[in-house]
Nucleic acid binder design. Structure first.
Length: 503
RNA sequence: GCCCCCAUCGUCUAGUGGCCUAGGACAUCACCCUUUCAAGGUGGAGAUCGCGGGUUCGAAUCCCGCUGGGGGCACCA
């Protein structure tokens, strides 16, 4: 299969049945990348023909999630375009699908089926009871003359319109990603799928195809779960005499344990959740591009422009990708480290506010204080949501016996008494300092090590726990500077007092 | 059950007949740096290229079978 010539028209067509799944973003991204790389349009279309599963607000979540990762569209529900509307229920109301189904009926390629859902369920049950595992429905009405179908319909009996699939022969199609041989399906494996529900609403198999044709879609990129139903689609294209689009079925994204696809029920995959946890949109963009596609096997960190320039359909993998949260985290850390202090502060601010550490309307002092602390956590952050926890002791009291265990103050190979000596000496030395800056603090504390004949490890460790309540924290001198003189000294005193209680 | 798709280190992936004694990344281990944790640097371990047959002078790369995994079989998309 050769490369793409000419402009492409591709689309992402989600159904508003819930918040956007991260795998859906990957599908959207590949389509978007295709349009931007080869030149052409990326279209957003909402497929809301399932009234039962419709979730109010879902369409907005989808748009917002796509925008968040930086995917924009050239035509869509909100901005319109030459082939609108871009919402299927609206297209249905305009009667867009009617003439096409009528055409199929007239040609005898589809028929009205009066079998009800209940009857169908009974037939399936009966088939199963008879040991027939594969039940393939073909309605008895498929051989009725159209006039008879219309006659019965006129009596008010509800009906669906089904595709009259050929009983013999085979249906074949090519998939760009699974190049080489054609995918061949014997027609006896098909069944007469519903095209129009008894409510009159078209089903995906029919609606998407009419829309793709009218919208002049050139490449259909969708998840590989659509491969088995593609024969129905090509049957329809051929029936209508419409040119088939190029099919490119994207590899599935499997769960971390490899057992099945990522699923909304079992996995935390709603796109807004990644935002909530503090993933940067540039991370998601880059990581998702690598789910089923690769550039050269070596380069992984790429900007949007680089990705657009390098993305080609040929390099999409046919084999499934597997979701790797660890790698995602790592990549987010890389992108966080690329930010400037101010940029990171801006991104971290909402998390600090949500944690209640900074007011809803951040004051000038709160903002500059945050800016001063950001360098301390910058290279330690992998998810923005970790920031409040890492910065907690700069904002909240540190109380021995309450926010930490006083026993943690005691360094290895030391006892409480020795620790008291160390901390008293530290308090004494530090209280002499008027220039409360990291260099001055370092000079003083290193001199104290000499004086006390102790290594920095134990002394600094004890001070760290005393002022932060943690054994793991940013570098000590910066931390002390950030906490400030008065608070640092009083926390040392509290620690000494707590240790004295232990004697 | 039937049909379809897929198959390289634990995971993602490079590889399109000789450059492969199989490269990179995550994770993992060790060391360096060092006040803890990170970050960074160096190095290690980790893949009989799922198995079995072919084709070929030569196969991870082509063909067949098997096995394994995934997906689909709705008046859902």
């Amino acid at each position: 299969m050769s490369a793409i010539e000419g402009p492409v028209r591709v689309r992402f067509a989600p159904s508003p049945t819930g918040s956007l799944h991260i795998g859906g973003v990957r599908t959207a991204l590949f389509n978007w990348l295709c349009a931007r790389h080869y030149g052409g349009q990326f279209i957003l279309r909402i497929e809301d023909t399932d009234e039962k599963r419709f979730v109010p607000g879902a369409a907005d979540d989808i748009s917002a999630s796509l925008r968040w990762v930086g995917i924009d569209w050239d035509e869509g529900p909100d901005i319109g375009g030459p082939y609108g509307p871009y919402v299927q229920s609206q297209r249905f109301e305009q009667g867009i699908y009617q003439p096409f189904i009528e055409q199929l009926l007239e040609a005898g390629l589809a028929y009205m089926s009066f079998t009800t859902e209940e009857e169908l369920a009974q037939m399936r049950a009966a088939a199963e009871a008879a040991g027939i595992k594969a039940f393939r429905f073909r309605g008895p009405e498929r051989d009725w003359p159209l006039a008879k179908q219309r006659e019965v319909a006129a009596t008010g009996k509800p009906y669906t319109i089904r595709l009259k699939t050929p009983l013999e022969g085979e249906t074949r199609f090519r998939d760009l990603i699974r190049g080489g041989d054609e995918i061949v399906v014997h027609n006896d494996q098909l069944q007469d799928i519903v095209l129009i529900k008894s409510t009159g609403m078209p089903v995906y198999h029919f609606a998407h195809l009419v829309d793709d044709h009218l919208m002049k879609i050139t490449h259909v990129m969708r998840g590989e779960e659509w491969v088995p139903s593609t024969p129905y689609h090509v049957l329809l294209y051929d029936f209508f005499g419409w040119p088939r689009p190029v099919f490119a079925h994207l590899p599935a994204i499997l769960r971390q344990d490899g057992r099945g696809k990522l699923s909304k029920r079992k996995d935390d995959v709603a796109t807004y959740r990644f935002r909530e946890r503090g993933y940067l949109p540039e991370t998601i963009f880059n990581y998702l591009a690598l789910q089923g596609w690769s550039y050269d096997g070596v380069t992984e960190i790429m900007t949007r422009d680089e990705l657009i320039a390098r993305f080609t359909l040929e390099r999409i993998q046919p084999s499934p990708a597997r979701w790797n949260p660890e790698k995602l985290r790592d990549m987010n850390g890389i992108y966080i480290r690329k930010l400037t202090t101010e940029q990171l502060a801006e991104r971290v601010l909402p998390f600090m506010q949500r944690a209640g550490l900074i007011g809803e309307l951040a004051s000038e002092e709160e903002w500059s204080y945050l800016i001063s602390l950001i360098p301390l956590i910058h290279e330690r952050l992998e998810e923005l949501q970790e920031a409040p926890e890492l910065l907690m002791f700069f904002y909240r009291d540190v109380i021995p016996g309450e926010t930490y265990n006083p026993a943690d103050l005691i360094p290895k190979k030391h006892d409480a008494g020795q620790t008291i000596t160390l901390l008293r000496a530290a308090h004494e030395a530090l209280s002499q300092i008027t220039d409360w800056t990291p260099p001055a603090l370092e000079t003083t504390l290193r001199a104290l090590c000499e004086q006390l004949q102790v290594k920095p490890g134990p002394l600094f460790g004890a001070i760290r726990v005393a002022v932060t309540g943690r054994s793991v924290a940013p570098p000590l001198f910066d931390t002390l500077a950030g906490i400030g003189r008065e608070r640092s000294l009083s926390r040392l005193n509290a620690a000494i007092a707590a240790l004295e209680q232990m004697l």
